[in-house]
Design a protein around this nucleic acid. Structure first.
Lengths: 193, 193
DNA sequence: TTCATTTATTGAACTTGTTCAATGTTTTGA
DNA sequence: TCAAAACATTGAACAAGTTCAATAAATGAA
């Protein structure tokens, strides 16, 4: 059940079998059915999660009612609202399952316990946060410098697997364009082939 | 010389005087004159820096020759290319002083030394990276959901101090719009008052 | 299977932002 | 202090992306 999780951890740092077991035992499995929410706006995010099955979207609804997707999380991805979780403030995000899904959740208290009792866990999350940080920086530059066509093509190349599993509505909300315009981009690309 | 730095650290975590001194001693001061570069594209970023005086911009030049500003760093801000520094890959960024400036630099080797010998330093950088992570997430959502007028007004409100010190060219490159268009936004705002 | 719901496509009119070129203003360095 | 360079503004033509409304296609639940 925690195979994927242990693999993911060992991909970032080295842990003894004992440390690994101790850390993994802090997680609880949860099933989330398609369209159901792991968290909604206004709640305080009490968990950090690791997806073992299915697919989630993390999104925001702005003052005009438009949805912006911050990221998608499929198997082997971590998921949380780091802002709400860290500062214990009401979240501005929704986390919704786009397929029948399963996550391993760790509570804030248990994560603190891990930080204090398994020193390398501090490093694990520093390294993971750094990686996300790098990805976010790249996305900001891409959003500033690239046209929507280019961002769409890059998305397909970077996440061919997600592309298969997502509707164009979801992809448009990630790229920051209307789904009608995405449709026109798709036509243009198709006609070029 | 390291007063600002110690204050900044104590803002994030608790350290004994000894730990603090030991960590601060790993930094070297460097002056960077206006318009000079702390780092340029293609170099491998060998340092992490803390600005004690002046102002820097961290930016990228895209394939069409346009500049995108990732962030500005004034006094009390940290500065690095975390991607290049972490992965030891050639940087895609420029770091340039916009005023006569001073930074305290720590090398990768000394930072590793600190991680291994002052356990709380691991926590310091985890906490700092988390905060940046949160800020980057907010910026992505803002870039996706807000119009240029709104982003400009928000920028002024959020960084009134930076607004004073920056040219409109720099601000436009941060907002992701042409400086001509920023000029038109400014006229529109001025006429409304 | 079927019918309701969600998703995708299309066109026309519109808004936001860019590009280019010209002109005026401010800063800066010798 | 003064000329050169950098910065800021403006208008006109254009390109990128949105909005709205209509229709078609795919999906899903009973």
């Amino acid at each position: 059940m925690t195979e994927l999780l242990t693999q993911n951890i060992l991909n970032h740092i080295t842990l003894s079998k004992k440390e690994l077991e101790s850390f993994c035992s802090l997680f609880n499995q949860k099933e989330v059915r398609k369209k159901h929410f792991l968290m909604q706006e206004g709640e305080i995010c009490k968990f950090e999660g690791f997806v073992t099955k299915g697919l989630f979207r993390v999104y925001h609804i702005d003052s005009n009612g438009f949805e912006q997707v911050l990221y998608f999380a499929q198997e082997n991805w971590w998921i949380t609202d780091i802002d709400s979780f860290t500062n214990e403030t009401p979240s501005q995000l929704y986390i919704q399952a786009l397929e029948d899904s399963e996550v391993l959740l760790i509570s804030k208290k248990d994560k603190e316990f891990a930080y204090n009792n398994i020193p390398k866990i501090e490093k694990l999350f520093r390294v993971m946060t750094q990686k996300t940080h790098i990805a976010l920086q790249r996305r900001i530059i891409d959003n500033l410098s690239k046209t929507a066509d280019r961002r769409y093509i890059d998305f397909i190349e970077k996440y061919p697997n997600l592309f298969q599993r997502l509707t164009n509505l979801q992809i448009a909300a990630y790229l920051g364009i209307s789904h009608e315009f995405l449709s026109k981009i798709r036509r243009k690309i198709a006609s070029k082939k």
